[in-house]
Computed example of a mutant assay.
Amino acid sequence: MLDWMNRYRRNRMVDHYITQLGPALRKRYGLREQYTVPQIQKTLVAIHLNTHYLAYAVALYRHEASRNTVNLRLSQTFLDSLRAEMAKRYFHGRDSYRAHDVLGLVKTSRWRGGRSADGVRSWVAGAAD
C-alpha cells in the first residue's frame, strides 16, 4: 500500500514537472536542449514546486551528467536509468529525448484561431445567413 502511494505521489510530481516546470524554464531561459541543475533548482523554488523528486526533474531536462549532477549524487548511470523510466512512460521508450521534447508534451488548451475542429463555427456562420 505504501509503495503504491509513493509511486502515485512521484508520478503526480513528475506530471507537475512537465506541465509547470517546463514552461517556466522556457520562459526564464529560452528553449534549450538541456538546462543546468541550478536553473532547474532555482525555477522549482520560484514556482513553488516540491523538490523532493529533484532527480526526476533533472532527468527530464538534462541528459548529460555534470559537476552539479554529481554533487547531487546523480551519476550518468543513475541519470540514464531515470531517463529510461521517463522514456517508457512519456516517449514510447525513446530515451534520447531532450528538454524541447519534454516541452512538446505540454499542450495549450486555448483555441488560437484557425479552423474549428468540431464544425461549430461553420454551423453558427451558416445559421446567421
Rank of each mutant, 00 (worst) to 15 (best):
L60C: 03
I47E: 06
Q41S: 01
N68K: 13
H63L: 09
L54K: 02
Y53S: 05
R67I: 13
R62S: 13
H48I: 01
I47M: 11
L72Y: 07
A55H: 11
L72E: 06
L60W: 00
A65E: 13
T69C: 06
H52Q: 12
H52N: 10
R62Y: 09
H52A: 07
Y56D: 14
K42G: 06
L60I: 04
H48D: 15
T43L: 03
V70H: 10
Y61N: 01
A59Y: 05
A57P: 02
L54G: 01
L49R: 07
N71K: 14
L44D: 05
N68V: 00
T43Y: 07
A46R: 08
H63C: 12
L44P: 01
S66A: 09
S66C: 13
E64D: 12
E64R: 15
N68M: 10
T51W: 05
L60N: 00
L54R: 10
T43N: 04
Y56P: 06
Y61M: 08
A55E: 05
N68P: 07
Y61F: 15
V58E: 05
V70I: 15
R62F: 10
R62D: 12
L60S: 01
A65R: 13
A46G: 08
L72V: 04
V58C: 07
A55G: 13
Y61R: 01
V70Q: 13
H63V: 06
I47F: 05
Q41W: 00
T51S: 14
L44W: 01
I47A: 08
R62H: 14
Y56R: 06
A57N: 06
L49F: 07
R67K: 15
E64I: 02
H48M: 12
A65G: 15
Y56V: 05
N71W: 02
A65L: 08
N50M: 03
H63T: 08
V70G: 10
A46M: 04
E64T: 08
E64K: 12
V70S: 13
N68T: 12
Y56H: 15
Y53P: 04
L54Y: 04
S66L: 12
L49M: 12
T69H: 08
L60G: 05
L49T: 00
V45I: 03
N50Y: 05
I47L: 11
L54P: 03
V58R: 03
V70M: 15
H52S: 07
H63R: 15
A59Q: 00
H48P: 00
N68W: 08
L60Q: 06
H48R: 12
A59F: 00
Y53F: 12
R62T: 09
L49S: 10
L54I: 07
A57W: 04
A65K: 14
L72P: 07
Y61I: 04
E64N: 13
